[in-house]
Structure formats: structure tokens, C-alpha cells
């Protein structure tokens, strides 16, 4: 039964590791989006999504559209919900004074949880598989857990006043900004790695750039 649970856990980890709203660890330097954040007020209210901006007054978060909801409500309705929903209904503000704990994840690891499937190789170990099978599950599970927890900060190693560094707009919310047009990241390497963009070396780019980005030159 425990082994079955470990496998189920592995599959859950595979699901987490496959999140496309974060760049892979070796592509995070190209990321034009914000990190993923989970904030809690310590009283049951929680908010998660992409960190759009942060300053002394609070944190702005865009919900991940592939998820049902960005908010978790406190089981105690008398406690005031600190989360404010803005305009589109997908954009939220969490006052900095109410931030009790947070986790920032800025990249995703490799899909180590898939390696748990490789434990079937231990069936070739005969009776020793009674040791090697759980050992493989434990080690590959531990690696998968470590992978899923990598590239994170929390209130223990990052002060909440430094959250802005991992926001999509660390300079603050641009003005004007139509929040209804904000979309999530979908990480396909071609969009974030200059060298991999098709047509990178063609002359069309200069023309394209002139047309679309006249303000730059």
C-alpha cells in the first residue's frame, strides 16, 4: 500500500513539474514574466498566481488561467478577506501588511518524478528487489521532491520587501495598463530564447523592428 502511495505521489509530482507557467531552470534568465507566488495571511486566506508587481503597499497577482481559482478562503468567515479583486476578476491585490508567509518559485526543475517509473528495472534484481525497489522509489521520490522544491524562496530567505525583484514589472505597475489584456506565460523555448527563434538572422527583423518598435531608435 505504501508503495502504491509513493507511485501516486510520484505521478502528482510529475504533474507539478510539468507546469508550463514557469521557465525551465536553464531558461529562467530569459523570462519576461513574473515568478509564481503563493501568499498567505496566516489566517486561512491564500492567494496564488503570477507575481505582477510588488511594493511597500502590497502584491499584485494574476491568476493562472489553467487553474480553477487563485484564492483560498479562510474557514472562518468572520475573519476579513484581505484579498482585493481588481477589474477583470483575474487580478488581485494582497496588502503587504497582511502578508504572513509566501513562497516564490521562479523556475522549474527537470521532470525527475518520471524517473520513478524506472524503478521497474529493479524487478531484474530478483529477491533483492524487495530492498532495491523501495530504495529506488525513495531516492527517486526524494530527488523528485527536491526538484519540485528547487528554485524557490520563502519568507525565511527573502524579505517581503524584496519580492518586487521577481515580479513581471519590478519597476511597479505601468501606467496605463489594461489588466484584462494580461496573459499567462506559456513557455515554449522558441519564445524565450533568442537564438532559437526562427528567422533570427533574416533581414525581416530589422524591418519588423522599425515598424513595430519605432520608439527604440
Amino acid at each position: 500500500m505504501k508503495i502504491v502511495n509513493l507511485f501516486l505521489f510520484g505521478f502528482l509530482l510529475v504533474g507539478c513539474a510539468g507546469s508550463k507557467v514557469l521557465p525551465r531552470y536553464d531558461q529562467m534568465h530569459y523570462n519576461p514574466y513574473g515568478a509564481q507566488i503563493k501568499i498567505s495571511d496566516g489566517k486561512g486566506y491564500r492567494l496564488q498566481g503570477e507575481l505582477i508587481a510588488a511594493n511597500d503597499s502590497g502584491v499584485w497577482v494574476l491568476r493562472n488561467f489553467n487553474k480553477e481559482d487563485a484564492q483560498a478562503l479562510s474557514p472562518f468567515p468572520r475573519i476579513k478577506n484581505p484579498i482585493q479583486t481588481i477589474d477583470s476578476g483575474n487580478f488581485y491585490f494582497f496588502p503587504m501588511s497582511e502578508v504572513n508567509g509566501f513562497t516564490i518559485k521562479y523556475a522549474r526543475s527537470r521532470k525527475y518524478a518520471a524517473m520513478m517509473g524506472a524503478t521497474v528495472i529493479t524487478f531484474g534484481h530478483g529477491v533483492i528487489s524487495s530492498i532495491s525497489f523501495p530504495l529506488n522509489l525513495i531516492v527517486s521520490g526524494a530527488v523528485a521532491i527536491a526538484g519540485s522544491k528547487a528554485y524557490q524562496y520563502n519568507e525565511g530567505n527573502l524579505h517581503k520587501n524584496e519580492l518586487y525583484q521577481f515580479a513581471r514589472y519590478p519597476q511597479g505597475l505601468p501606467n496605463p495598463l489594461d489588466v484584462r489584456q494580461l496573459g499567462n506565460a506559456v513557455f515554449q523555448p522558441a519564445l524565450v530564447t533568442p537564438k532559437r527563434i526562427k528567422g533570427y538572422e533574416t533581414e525581416d527583423f530589422a524591418k519588423n523592428k522599425q515598424e513595430k518598435r519605432g520608439i527604440l531608435e
Binding site: 514574466y33 513581471r168 511597479g172 506565460a185 533570427y200 519588423n208 518598435r213 527604440l216
Partner: peptide, 24 residues
């Protein structure tokens, strides 16, 4: 790579940015 405010339409190539336009 130059992204617009909504991170759409990335333009790749030689990017020349006036320092005065940079916030951070």
C-alpha cells in the same frame, strides 16, 4: 528580445534602448 507591455509580439534582433527609457 524586446517584449511589449503585455509580453506579446517579441521582436528579436539588435536592440538599442535609450537609458532614459529604462526604469530598472
Amino acid at each position: 528580445v524586446h517584449y511589449d507591455v503585455y509580453r506579446r509580439n517579441p521582436v528579436v534582433g539588435e536592440c538599442k534602448i535609450p537609458i532614459s527609457s529604462v526604469s530598472l
